[in-house]
Design a protein around this nucleic acid. Structure first.
Lengths: 237, 237
DNA sequence: ATTGCTCTATGATAAAAGTCATAACAGTAC
DNA sequence: GTACTGTTATGACTTTTATCATAGAGCAAT
């Protein structure tokens, strides 16, 4: 694991923050947040915060990609959320008065701004609009988690893998070619997103390839037949 | 299914509301909520709200037991939360500006107060303390959902069933005898809580009985060896 | 008491998914 | 280049879990 060297950068004009929930704060509050934020660059594999540790603030992803993963009782990783620019994280533990329930691990070089707890809470106390946005965000995440819960309980691995590929596409989109998923996951990471064994993921991806739905080139995954993948995912909701 | 006849009752002095998050509202706001709430009695099987419909307010369970269940893509029930007195529900959809993601179905005769959307939102806008409590509640539920997600993905049915029995115990407690779970679930409902087939649940419960961990008497379940159940659940967190 | 109904229980079997072993391959260090 | 290492791929096999079938138990209505 690389040492967590964090290089500061100036993200004062960060567009990401303007697109995040934080932008819903009143102008004067947004200025306070901007004044107190500390921005850093993280390299692939670096850990932004560790599961089990205490939150000292919230993080806003300015650019890049981050996974939130939780270790199961036997040490197996479960990826519970994916973050991209404009997403904030660390708020669940902070607002719940809890420790981090997952670690935030950077998937590629990523710029992240940190806002200290006291500043964030103080702004939140005086900004009902922002508080509502936070509740909305939490509500959305809870909804997503409950949907996924049902899928994990009821859907076979094949459907969940198709669904996961579509989810990755919805989150990170495609590269310029319009078909290659714009992120590199190992097979193991995909398995930890789906909630299955790595070998099962590899096998099913091979099947998807044989069926012409995807094309595989190392960690590059191309979606050839999205409609067919959607049917394989068998989504109703 | 019984017709949804709702009989009003007076829950003005409802202790449940005093124990719920709503009690964290400022005194004057609590009075407003109390003035505008409408209380009803629901009988076993009645539906408080339906998955897919639009929220018109929040519900506070004054006494009784309620399950929140979500229908999977192929119509199978997944029970995602259990409510008891003092719990509120309906806030997820309301705050998220969303439809209900699950139906609330009453497990036994239950008193529930309804607070209209406008009243609730209005109070919430002017009560930062209550807003924080709501965020705390949402954070807690999100945390629980993410933990369960990991367990569903990684733990075998046997462990999840043991965990579910302990969860039921933590939620509804025991009867006077100190060992009988204070709620009646069908085997199918337990299966829908665990996320497995009804037959698997029946089989494993029989095993637990053979191992002396539980005693079964129709829908009555007695926990004979809680320590052993905890070991079977294999919980680390 | 008899009928019909739902729920619980159990066996037989099939399907799904996980595990283990090993090979092929790619990327990196030397 | 060669060795080393980690990832991907595949086959063989086992375990887990679901499904199907059927029987019995409990309960309500007649």
């Amino acid at each position: 694991m690389k040492p967590p060297v964090e290089i500061r950068f100036d993200c004062h004009t960060s567009e990401a923050m303007m697109n995040s929930v934080l932008s819903k704060a009143k102008k004067e509050h947004l200025e306070i947040l901007n004044e107190h934020k500390v921005c850093n660059i993280y390299k692939r594999g670096q850990v932004v915060f560790h599961e089990g540790s205490h939150p000292f603030g919230v993080y806003c992803v300015s650019s890049g990609k981050v996974k939130l993963s939780h270790l199961g009782d036997d040490g197996k990783e479960q990826i519970i959320r994916l973050l991209k620019e404009g997403d904030i994280t660390g708020y669940r533990a902070l607002l719940g008065g809890d420790r981090y329930g997952a670690s935030a691990i950077v998937l590629e070089d990523t710029h992240i701004c940190f806002i200290p707890k006291e500043i964030f809470i103080d702004v939140l106390k005086n900004d009902a609009g922002l508080a509502f946005e936070m509740m909305k965000l939490l509500s959305y995440e809870l909804h997503r988690a409950e949907l996924q819960l049902t899928h994990l309980a009821q859907k076979p691995v094949r459907e969940r893998l198709a669904e996961t590929l579509l989810f990755i596409k919805d989150t990170y989109g495609f590269e310029q070619d319009g078909i290659t998923l714009n992120v590199r996951f190992s097979r193991e990471e995909i398995a930890n997103l789906v909630g299955t064994a790595t070998e099962s993921t590899i096998r099913l991806l091979s099947e998807f390839k044989k069926d012409g739905m995807v094309e595989l080139d190392g960690k590059k995954i191309k979606i050839l037949m999205q409609r067919e993948l959607e049917r394989t995912a068998n989504l109703q909701d």
